[in-house]
Structures are given as structure tokens and as C-alpha cells.
Design a protein around this nucleic acid. Structure first.
Lengths: 279, 279
DNA sequence: GCAATAGTTTCGCTATGCGAAATAGTGTGT
DNA sequence: ACACACTATTTCGCATAGCGAAACTATTGC
């Protein structure tokens, strides 16, 4: 799933694209600044590896030649986004990277409005509640509350979940205007190819669920030991769409609880806060 | 405070450095990749402005010429870190930016260990509790819990607070080994210049407080309507240092409460979790 | 309609960023 | 101790990526 592709300098070769990328490094796009893209790829590389990486590892993972990696990591360190682990000299993300996202987090009014509702649900039901926004083919967690920590799975802010395989992704799809959904379907189709027919069926089913009862359920699909319900959030003008979910490990949450209790409560939360969506 | 400086192409001029930057764009540092630095400066520019910005505004803020901004924003959009607001065409951060920080957040074990303790304190005392790590001259929030939302100030993950003016920064300084603290003092001195003597006195005072009672208090200095206590977190080998704080608006939290109740409780939390520091 | 402002494209130059290969650095094992 | 294996950095000359002034479009306001 996490095959990082090359961004060669004078990019000629057709690249093996991974899910998340457009045709990066397209041959001679005079507006595209390759060195910037490469630097960002280095930062992104840390998503497929835990903790710290040596230049060698980064080079292998990104397909960028070693000397370039030296320069890139050097620059990123100077800028304060990477730092070198004093013990083994490997690079790791520095806290500075978090500041890049700060303006986004603090500017999302809905996030602050939603937070208390989410926390309350999470605590009272011992589940995990999250608010997410879309980026490419994934939903990205923008906020999260965990109840009853021992049993719950915790994904942090910035976590990515595939739209096509998750309840939160499908709820988001259901919240889109028809034309946008079609557009998105096309993208998904070209990413998932032969898996798509199956996934589309499920997405459509989720949409029916949402029409009927306001939330959709996914049980053990994204990860087989978890189940989740989700609700789309749509602004009044329909232009801004996000989604919230609520779930946890299968052993702790029965389908009945989700369908009869958490789903409706989540829908209720959605109704209350989506009024304030659209910043 | 947030003066963004130029990163000219063939950088010759001595730059007006802001707090957070080293001598970026130093003349002919063969290892430094300017285009990457510029792209990151564009992203960083969103920290000094709310919401969305036009190319023009970005150009003005970063001192990068318009055509280059066109290319940079184009590239950043292609990579999924910026997106264009459909209504006014201005650029804004996209959720993708949050994913960059995800590996850092999810890899910090201490963060997960600390979370419940922090939440409990925040809820029971109606204050705001945060965990922070250092980046350059600031502490960067890595996690945060707000109790009693109506009265509390909320800074999100990624927020930056000046080390020299905050209790959390001073607590962090107090947690450093002597040589590292000296090193940091030098950096602070050259950043704050004539303000430094005063600030150093206060930092030293904070250190005394911590030696004596395990936490330090700052009242209305960072922002005059808030007061906070903080505790350093030091790993067993002394190599990893972070800090936690606890505070709120002055009208809601008396100095007595902070000194007699919250300070000690925070210190207690610090003692429990710092054992697990150092990933 | 004409200004005024913001954004993009053109275009030719050159400093920039590149990577192969050489060099330096850092451990490991016997 | 010395050699071996491995990784990181520096050198160096080349090709071109990325640059910005200026021209050109697009958009908005009046």
C-alpha cells in the first residue's frame, strides 16, 4: 500500500503511482518545482517507517540518490523540520513539523465546536470518536477523542484512512453533491481498478444506510477487529463536507450498540454541529 | 514577532533573521536547496495569517517574487499540501499537511501515556493541560487537554510558545543538563539581546522554584490574562527533555490554586510519566 | 468602456542543483 | 592492531531547472 515512487530529476519514465499521488514529476511541467517535491517526499517518507531513518534508508525508500538525500535532509534540518538523533545519527521528524499544521487546526471552527460533543460521546460510551477531512483518496483525522483508553484504538491527528474502505470515507462520499461524488468515483476507480466494483457497491450501500437512518456502519472491513459508524457533515451551502465516526474494537462494541445507540447519537451530534461548518 | 524573512535566490544580503530561523539562505552553502526552503517558507507563511491567502499576499509576506510564488503554490497544491478555495481562489492549507506530523505524534509513546493523566487533571480542575517539545526558540504543543471548555483557552497541537517567556519553556530549560542549558542561553541571548538579562533572571528564578517545589509559575507574562505552572520531564538518561504545563485565564484560576493544588498534582504526573520518556 | 489589480506565461540566462565517483567517517570482527 | 564493510559527505564539471523582468490575460470595479 505504501509504495513511494520516484521523483527523478528530468522525469521521463512513467512512474508507478501510489494511491495518494497525482502524476507527480510529470515530464517537463515548467511550473513544477522538483526539488521542493523531493524535499516533501522525504518528509512524507517517514509515514511508511517508524521513528528514525538514515540517509541510506530514506534514499532507498524514495528512490532519490544519496547525495541528493544528503542535501535534502541537510536543508530540512536547517529549516527545523528534521533533526538528527544524537545517539545513532539517524534523522527523525522534529516538532517543528507540527507547527505547519497549526493554522489549519486552529482555524477550523467546527473542530472546536465538535470537540466537547465528541469527548462526551467517547467517554460515556468508551469508544473512539473522530472528525476527519478529505485529502486525496483518504480521510485525514483532524480531531479525535478516546474514551476508556485501555480498550480503544487510538489514531492520532493526521492519521489517514482510505475513503473507499472505511465508514468515515463512505459517509463523506454520501455527503457530497452528486457531481462531486461522480468525480470522486472516477478517481477511486482508477486507483482501485478491479477492486472498485465491489467497493462501489459498498459505498452505494453506505449511502442508502445514511439516507435511511443517518449513519453508515462498517464492520471489520478496514481492520477486521474494529467496527465503526459514521455520519457526514455538510455545510449549509453544501460546499464543505467532512465526516465524523465513532467506533472501537469488535470485542468491546456490539453491532447492536452501534446501530441502536451510538449511530443515532452520532447522527444527532452531526445535526447539531454541521450548521456551523464552512468555517 | 512573526517577521518572515527573505530567502533570495543567490542570497548575498545579510538577512533580518526572525527568532525561529538560523542563517537560512546563507551565501553559497552548496548543500542548501533554496527552492525547497522557499516552498517550506510558503507553508510557514500561513502561521502569520489567518485562513487563506492569495499569491499576492504570500509574495508580500515571504518576499518571494510573484512568478516564483505561482510555481511554488502550484507545486504545493500538486503535492496536496495546499488547496485553492473554490469561492475566492485563495490558497489554504489542506488536510494533507497534518499527515506530515502524524508519524511524530503516533511515535511518541509518552504522549499516549500522558494523555489520560492530562485529561483527568484538565477535567477535574477546569484548566488546560499541555505537553510540549522544543523546536528552536519555542515550545511546540504535542498534546493538549482542555477541561471546562467555556472558560479555558485552547491552543492546538502545533502551537508555538516562546521558551523565554513561558512557564513551560522555563521548565524545559530547567530540565536540561547544565551544558545544554548554557548552549541554549547563548542562543536566547543572541535572539533577545537587551531583553535577555531580564528574561534570564526569570528563567533562573523558575529553576529555583523547580528545585524547591518541582514546578514553576508564570503569571500574566506570556499573555497577561493567563497564568500557568509547568514541570519538566526528563528521561532516565537525561537526553530527552520535554515539559508539561497546566493553566488558564487569571479570572478562573487563582495563584493559590495553582501553587497549592495544581502545581503539586502536575509535578506528581510528571514523576509518573517521565520514567517512560525517551520513546 | 477603461482603469486597476492579481495571476500567469514567455523567454533567454545562469546559478542551481545534480549524480558518478572519489573521499572521509564509523564502527565490527578477529 | 589492522583490515573490512558500510554509510555519509564532498568534489567537480555539466545540463538544466528554476529564475525574474516584462509582457500578457483575467477579473473586478466604476
Amino acid at each position: 500500500m505504501t509504495e513511494t515512487q520516484q521523483i527523478p530529476r528530468a522525469a521521463v519514465k512513467p512512474l508507478v503511482l501510489d494511491f495518494e499521488s497525482h502524476g507527480i514529476g510529470k515530464r517537463s511541467d515548467r511550473k513544477f518545482i522538483t526539488s521542493l517535491a523531493r524535499g516533501l517526499e522525504v518528509l512524507r517518507a517517514f509515514q511508511s517507517q517508524s521513528g528514525s531513518m538514515s540517509n541510506k534508508e530514506i534514499s532507498a525508500l524514495t528512490n532519490i540518490p544519496k547525495p541528493s538525500i544528503t542535501r535534502l535532509t541537510y536543508t530540512l534540518s536547517e529549516m527545523g523540520y528534521l533533526q538528527q538523533n544524537k545517539t545513532d545519527g539517524k534523522y527523525e521528524l522534529s516538532a517543528g513539523i507540527l507547527s505547519l499544521g497549526y493554522p489549519l487546526l486552529s482555524g477550523l471552527r467546527i473542530r472546536h465546536l465538535a470537540h466537547d460533543h465528541m469527548a462526551e460521546l467517547a467517554n460515556s460510551a468508551g469508544c473512539t470518536v473522530a472528525l476527519a477531512s478529505r485529502d486525496r483518496m483518504s480521510m485525514v483525522y483532524v480531531d479525535e477523542s478516546c474514551g476508556n483508553s485501555s480498550t480503544s484504538l487510538r489514531l492520532d491527528i493526521g492519521a489517514r484512512i482510505e475513503i473507499a474502505r472505511s465508514s468515515i470515507g463512505r459517509a463523506w462520499l454520501a455527503g457530497l453533491a452528486e457531481d462531486e461524488r461522480q468525480e470522486m468515483y472516477l478517481q477511486l476507480e482508477s486507483a482501485y481498478i478491479d477492486e472498485w466494483p465491489e467497493l462501489k457497491t459498498r459505498a452505494d450501500d453506505a449511502m442508502d444506510q445514511i439516507k435511511e437512518r443517518g449513519f453508515c456502519l462498517v464492520d471489520g472491513e478496514w481492520r477486521k477487529d474494529t467496527r465503526t459508524v459514521s455520519v457526514p457533515l455538510v455545510s449549509e451551502d453544501g460546499k464543505t463536507v467532512m465526516a465524523i465516526n465513532c467506533g472501537g474494537p469488535t470485542f468491546a462494541l456490539s453491532v447492536e450498540t452501534l446501530e441502536n445507540e451510538l449511530g443515532p447519537r452520532l447522527r444527532h451530534i452531526g445535526e447539531k454541529i454541521s450548521l456551523f461548518l464552512g468555517k
